[in-house]
Design a protein around this nucleic acid. Structure first.
Lengths: 303, 303
DNA sequence: TGAGGTGTTGCAAAAAATGCAACGCTCGGC
DNA sequence: GCCGAGCGTTGCATTTTTTGCAACACCTCA
């Protein structure tokens, strides 16, 4: 008795959409294409509408298909929540919190917070997916993540923010960097050194671009990367300066050979770090608890 | 290929809960008790929890069972919505709006509004259930109604109001009643006549009771009923006076031999007529449209 | 204590889902 | 211009799942 009998159809259709073809989806599901095809046909007849456009190269969801897919993913997530709630009722406080977050946060914030959270809730385990801005939102939409944590996300109608914490920009540099000695740090000072910038896929870059565009300063960019670890390791070995938002910079410990300093320019605005969920969705209990934990940590640290 | 293959389990469990026993539920589902029992057992094993307490006289949902039932009913409603949305996509703008409302509104408001709404949206049909206060809320909770319209409902955490319109109390009397001639009507005037009051199961009674309790007036109640039609038909034949809220009184047309007059007492407060839905629920498209129509009518008439 | 209700189980029958092999189709490359 | 590789789809046999039937064990109430 497979655990997910009721969700079978939903998984089938979802697989077709993901793999883009019945044959590949069938392979992934360990069934034959014919079986899968029949489930799809029955469903389509039942709904009175085609869910996929038959392309010579594969299948593409129709508008009706998109609707169904959203429903299917929602069902799957919701059934998992139900399962978790029932388990919680039985006294075993277990479950999984699934989070999508942009890179900066993962390496610094999460390990500590998760460790501390698990000390209080040992039965709860985590799935953390690191990805860029848009993928975080997409993961929420596809019901692949319960919570999303992103910097500088643009508001959309189907995402509802649960918590926003303003984040200033920090400069990251080698621990023995001349700037590390200065009590107060201005952007102008940083620009005297080569820069290692996060690329456009990472939060914070937009802040920098906006600043550069308004000012007449002339930055000397020697490295651009989509990996904060890369940037950190880079500045450790020379006199270049990189940038990161507050929570991400918290990781820059002296024993790593790098350090972070807050930048005091007024012109450089702040953008919020946002904890968000899919609008209208019922979150599993563990996810709600973890969100509460995050709230305490972030609001405590942010002020 | 039965239309509701995917919801089979959900219907099974729901039937058990409704009928209170496997045998009766099985009868209603046109299957044997053994088949039904097996589905239940498989499900319980799958979830790792009993969904029903085995009583010698039948089955009673456990806490886990209640959770599952809510989920099941939600699924059923949500799947219907999906089906409707897909049909809407195909160009056939059809669907069903399911409403639970307290008595007063059904006879006056709804026939007109629904007729007008169907002129613009001919494919949409209606299911209107008339019941008392608590049943309206319960129908929303059980996903049996999309919308609920009640007078003077007490706020609860799982119901979200979509629209509130304050409703004053009206006196209803025979068209040739002496009071019908008066330009302004006070409660004191009404009390000189015998009263026909709605009973406690109907909205508006609370307002009257509160007023009587505070005042020293001595009402002479000759009829109490849970049917507004009954009350209306009664006052038509004699000099008794009945009461109803604004929208309900709108039906009291002169050709019926009754008329309604607003009561001008300050001491008699107003209570809101509330259009509500279950919190967090995605309403079917037709229901949302109808809610919008109701909003226009009620807000237009209320002000 | 017995009658009528309940849930439950063993085994056979029915129904649904699947696998296998083959067909028809469209596309892209030689 | 044709040929092969990929695709979705279909007919039929097989397997898996669901259901029905009859019987059992249990509890309650008269």
């Amino acid at each position: 008795m497979s655990a997910l009998q009721y969700l079978r159809i939903f998984n089938y259709i979802d697989a077709i959409a993901r793999h883009g073809s019945i044959r590949k989806a069938a392979e992934g599901l360990f069934i034959t294409p014919s079986a899968l095809d029949r489930r799809l046909q029955d469903l389509e007849e039942d709904l009175g509408a085609e869910l996929f456009e038959r392309h010579a190269r594969g299948m593409r969801p129709t508008a009706a298909g998109e609707l169904f897919l959203k429903h299917a993913r929602e069902q799957r997530a919701d059934f998992e929540r139900l399962r978790g709630d029932i388990a919680h009722l039985r006294g075993l406080h277990r479950g999984t919190v699934s989070i999508a977050a942009s890179q900066a946060l993962a390496f610094s914030l999460f390990p500590d917070i998760i460790t501390r959270f698990r000390q209080k809730n040992p039965g709860i385990d985590f799935k953390v997916r690191i990805c860029d801005h848009n993928s975080v939102v997409q993961a929420l939409r596809d019901f692949e993540a319960d919570l999303g944590l992103v910097y500088n996300v643009q508001p959309t109608t189907d995402i509802s923010p649960m918590l926003e914490v303003e984040q200033r920009l920090c400069a990251v540099m080698a621990a023995d960097h001349p700037l590390a000695q200065q009590p107060e740090l201005r952007m102008r000072d940083c620009l005297r050194y080569p820069l290692a910038l996060p690329d456009a896929s990472l939060g914070g870059r937009m802040l920098l671009d906006a600043f550069f565009a308004r000012s007449s300063l002339n930055p000397q960019v020697v490295l651009e990367s989509n990996s904060f670890e890369m940037l950190r390791n880079f500045v450790r070995g020379n006199d270049a300066v990189s940038f990161q938002i507050q929570v991400g910079a918290a990781l820059a410990r002296v024993q790593d050979g790098v350090t972070a300093r807050q930048i005091d320019d007024r012109g450089l605005g702040t953008r919020p770090l946002t904890l968000a969920q899919l609008k209208g969705r019922h979150l599993p209990l563990p996810a709600m608890r973890f969100a509460q934990s995050l709230r305490e940590v972030l609001e405590g640290a942010g002020e």
